[in-house]
Design a protein around this nucleic acid. Sequence first.
DNA 1: GTGCCAGATAGAGTGCGCTCGAGGTCAAGA
DNA 2: TCTTGACCTCGAGCGCACTCTATCTGGCAC
Lengths: 136, 136
Amino acid sequence: MPEAFRIGELSRRSGRSIHTIRWYEAQGLMPGVTRDAGGRRVYASDHVIWLELVDRLRLTGMSVAEIRAYARHVREGRAGRPRLRDILAAHAAETGRRIEDLREAKSFIERKIRFYDDWITTGVRPAIPKRPKPRP
Amino acid sequence: MPEAFRIGELSRRSGRSIHTIRWYEAQGLMPGVTRDAGGRRVYASDHVIWLELVDRLRLTGMSVAEIRAYARHVREGRAGRPRLRDILAAHAAETGRRIEDLREAKSFIERKIRFYDDWITTGVRPAIPKRPKPRP
DNA sequence: GTGCCAGATAGAGTGCGCTCGAGGTCAAGA
DNA sequence: TCTTGACCTCGAGCGCACTCTATCTGGCAC
């Protein structure tokens, strides 16, 4: 029989607050939660792994609604697995684009830093180097 | 005399809505806006460049409050320039860390995709490859 | 039995960043 | 002169993701 624990322990292991974990469940983001005789939520180590994934999905900008859809497919078992794979693949691609956007923005900001450096050291306002490329 | 235009034109050139531009101004994010005889806001091409910067700062997660602080230093002129430089440098560094976090999250998700690929093709649930490194 | 803690529910409140609507003014063109 | 459209102010409303409060219950230690 695998290890079982309650919400306080899951909170400690996952770093999310107890309130947030309960709220996630209310939002349909916590598949496979059972209850003990006293009505208390019971978790297993899979839930820690699950929250690590949720963490990464949130960090990369997936909305709670999208994670809810993902969690629905988790509950489907075998039949849902190809969908899970596809959702993650689409999201990884999306994240790649986000990283590219951040990189572009960062280099824009770095050009601005050089602009200030020039301005401060020469005392003359430099020309704006070039127009940023328009978004397609 | 440089080109001057009104809010509709700035909206068109910057891609922000008229409401948002006015809201930015109310939040202290729009330095150097003047008014014509009829009380209408008058902008110059510098404001388009300014909104391009604001765009990149927002995209990279700078809060409106932080941009407000930045805009205050813009209004100080020469004396504020070193602070502007430093704020941007700190934010570029922060953005570098964000990009790293996204990369880590993306590769976590990609490991999960391979996990599903294995599971789907072999029919056997693979072991979780390794624990993600704890954040320091 | 009495404390006390961990856990439960329901629902209100918060912070952020817009977004929109109502109602009014002003200037140019027919 | 009348209409039209772009602009104005003020303030309410919204969507998201929590976050917190109030109040109640179950179970173990003493």
